[in-house]
Write a protein that binds this DNA or RNA. Structure first.
Lengths: 335, 335
DNA sequence: TTGTATGCGTTATCAC
DNA sequence: GTGATAACGCATACAA
C-alpha cells in the first residue's frame, strides 16, 4: 500500500489534522512543525491521494472537454483557450466522442458520477430537452455549436452571418453563379451557414439553384464528390463556397486534378481558418473563427456559473473575419 | 446535496449493502429485491458517486494519455487504438503537454494523486532516470517515442530503419544528392532517423554533406527554412528527405513557390503518413507508421502489466511501410 | 439472501 | 497552534 497522511503524521510526530493544514495552508501552523511535516513528506515521498480529498470536498478540479475527434485540428485553438482560462485551478481533460451519441453519454458519465466538476461540449449529439435537463443538474456548456431550443451557456460565432459575408464577398468579386458544398445533417452550424449563403444570394438578386448544392458529410472525400456534382450541373458554378476547410480542400484538389487553376479558373472558399487552409497549395480563402477566444470565453463564463448562484445560460456570439488567400483572391475593396 | 446510496436503500427498504450489490452485481440478490432497488434508483434518478467507489476500491478506471498537442493529427490513430484496447473497462482521457516539462509533470500529478490508474506518454520531456523512477512506482508506458536508457514499456517503429528505407528508395530512383530536413533537438526519433539517412548514404557510397542538412524545429515554417538553406547550398540536392510530413509540406510549398514542380524537378519525402500527406497537392510520399496498431498494442501490454506481478518493460517495434505519392514517385521496382 | 459494521484517505469542526 | 474525531459515499468481510 502507498504512504498516507497518517504515515506522514506519525513520522513528523504530529496529528493528521496538522499535516492536512500544511498541505492546504488552510490554517496557521508554526514554522517549526511545518518544517517537520515537510521533512517527513520528503522523506517518505508522500503525495496526497486525491480520491480521499475529492470525496471529502466533493470536487475534483477537473473539467471535461468532449470533442468529436482529434483528426481535425480545428479544435486545437479552442482547447488552448479552455485550458488557459481553467488554469491553474482546473485541469482540462479531453475525450473523443467520434460523434456517437452512445460514446458521448458514456463520457458524460464522468459528470454524473462526480468524476469531473463540469463539461464543455465542442459539438454534441444530444437534443435540446436532454441538454436542458442536464444543465439543470450539472455544470455544462456548449462551444462552437449551438442547439436549437437549448437553454445553456453557448459560445459560437454567428454562422449565418459568416456564410453571408463569405458569399457576398464572392458576389462582389463578380460571381453570379456560386455553388455550395455543405453537410446533409441538421447541425445548426451547417444549416445556419446555408441560410447565410441563401440570404446573400437573395439580397443580390441571384436565384437559389439546388443543382449546384451538394449535401454530404464532413470529410475530405465529400469535397471531391461535391465538386463533381456541381461541375456536372447543367450550368456549373464559377465559385464554390464550402462550409468547412476540409471540404474546400477536397474541392480544390479535384479542381486541380481536373486541370483547373483554383483562384483563377474557379474560386473556392472554405470555413474555419484551420492550419490546413493556411499551408495548402493554393492557400484557402476562408472564414476565420476566433477559436482561442471562444474557448477562453466559454470556460471563463462556465467557471463564473459554477461559483455563482445565478446561472448565465446565454448564447454568446463572437465575431468572425474573412482571410483572403489564393483560392479566391479578394482585393481590399471587396473585403 | 445529491442523492446517495443511502437514499436509495431507504426508498427501497433495504440496506446499503444490498443496493451496492445490485449496482455491482457482485453477489446474488433475489429477483424481487433487485427490482425494488432498481425502481428506487429510477425514481430518485440516482447515479453512484464514483469518488466514494474509487476511494474504496483504490482504482479509477481511467488512463491518461499525454500528447504534445492537438494541433497535429498524427496522434489521432494512436489515440483510437488506445481507446479501443482500453474499452470498455477503462476510459482514456487526453491532456496536452505542449512539450513543456512543467506541464507534463503537472499532468502526471494525476498519476501521483491516484486520479488515474495509469498513463501513456506519446512523447515526453522526462529523462531516463525520472522515467525509471516513475515506472517503479506507477503504471507507465511510452508510445511512438523512445527514451535512451529508459526501462519501461515502449512501442514505436524502427525509426532508423524507416529513414534508411526512405533514403535508399530515393537512391535507387537515381538520386545521388539527397538533403535532410530534421529537428535540432535530441529526440531519439529524430536522431534515429538521421542515423538511418546517413547509413543509407554510406551503404551506397554517397558522402554525408552538412551543407544540405537543416536542423530546426518541427513546424511547417521549418520546412520552408530548410528548403531555402538546402537549395542555396553550393551544390543543391535533387531530393529532400524530411523527418515529418509537416516539414515535407513546408518544403514542398516553398519549392512550388520557387517554380519547381515537386515530383519532377525535385523529389520530397515525408514521414508519418498523416492525413495531410494524403490530401496535399502534390500528395506526399512518406513513411507510414501503424498508428492504430501502436496505440492498441501499448494499451494492451500496459493493461497486462497492471494485472500481473511481472512487469514487461520491453521495447516493441512495429513495422513501417512506404507510401508512394506524387512528391516522389516510386515505381514498384524501386519499392 | 440480506444486514451490520468497518475502513478507504482526506478535510473540517470542535475542542483545548 | 494543535489534536481528536466525525463525515464524505461507497464496497466488502463477516454475521445472521
Amino acid at each position: 500500500m502507498s504512504v498516507t497522511i497518517k504515515d506522514v503524521a506519525r513520522a513528523a510526530g504530529v496529528s493528521v489534522a496538522t499535516v492536512s493544514r500544511v498541505l492546504n495552508s488552510s490554517a496557521t501552523v508554526s514554522e517549526a512543525t511545518a518544517q517537520q511535516v515537510n521533512d517527513a513528506i520528503d522523506a517518505l515521498g508522500y503525495s496526497p491521494n486525491f480520491l480521499g480529498r475529492n470525496l471529502r470536498k466533493c470536487e475534483t478540479n477537473k473539467i471535461l472537454a468532449v470533442i468529436p475527434s482529434t483528426e481535425h485540428t480545428f479544435y486545437s485553438d479552442i482547447l488552448r483557450g479552455l485550458q488557459d482560462a481553467a488554469s491553474p485551478v482546473y485541469d482540462v481533460i479531453i475525450s473523443t466522442s467520434h460523434s456517437y451519441l452512445a460514446t458521448e453519454m458514456r463520457l458524460l458519465n464522468m459528470l454524473f458520477n462526480r468524476t469531473v466538476d463540469a463539461a464543455v461540449l465542442l459539438g454534441t449529439q444530444l437534443d435540446a430537452d436532454k441538454l436542458n435537463e442536464l444543465n439543470g443538474k450539472y455544470n455544462l456548456a456548449l462551444c462552437c455549436e449551438r442547439v436549437e431550443g437549448a437553454k445553456l451557456l453557448t459560445v459560437t460565432i454567428d454562422d449565418e452571418k459568416g456564410a453571408y459575408d463569405a458569399t457576398e464577398v464572392l458576389i462582389k468579386k463578380g460571381h453570379k453563379r456560386i455553388g455550395l458544398v455543405t453537410a446533409a445533417n441538421s447541425a445548426p452550424s451547417s444549416t445556419d451557414r446555408e441560410k447565410g449563403y441563401r440570404a446573400a444570394l437573395s439580397k443580390h438578386g441571384i436565384g437559389f439553384d439546388d443543382s449546384i448544392v451538394y449535401r454530404g458529410s464532413y470529410d475530405y472525400e465529400d469535397g471531391a464528390m461535391g465538386y463533381h456534382k456541381l461541375m456536372n450541373a447543367p450550368e456549373p458554378p464559377t465559385a464554390i463556397f464550402c462550409i468547412s476547410d476540409i471540404l474546400a480542400v477536397g474541392t480544390v484538389r479535384c479542381a486541380h486534378e481536373d486541370g483547373l487553376e483554383v483562384g483563377k479558373d474557379i474560386d473556392v472558399m472554405g470555413f474555419d481558418n484551420t492550419t490546413l487552409s493556411k499551408i495548402y497549395i493554393p492557400g484557402i480563402t476562408t472564414v476565420a473563427q476566433p477559436g482561442y477566444e471562444m474557448g477562453f470565453t466559454v470556460m471563463k463564463k462556465l467557471l463564473e456559473n459554477m461559483s455563482s448562484e445565478y446561472k448565465d445560460n446565454s448564447h454568446i456570439k463572437l465575431s468572425h473575419s474573412i482571410v483572403s488567400r489564393e483560392s479566391a483572391r479578394l482585393d481590399d475593396a471587396v473585403k
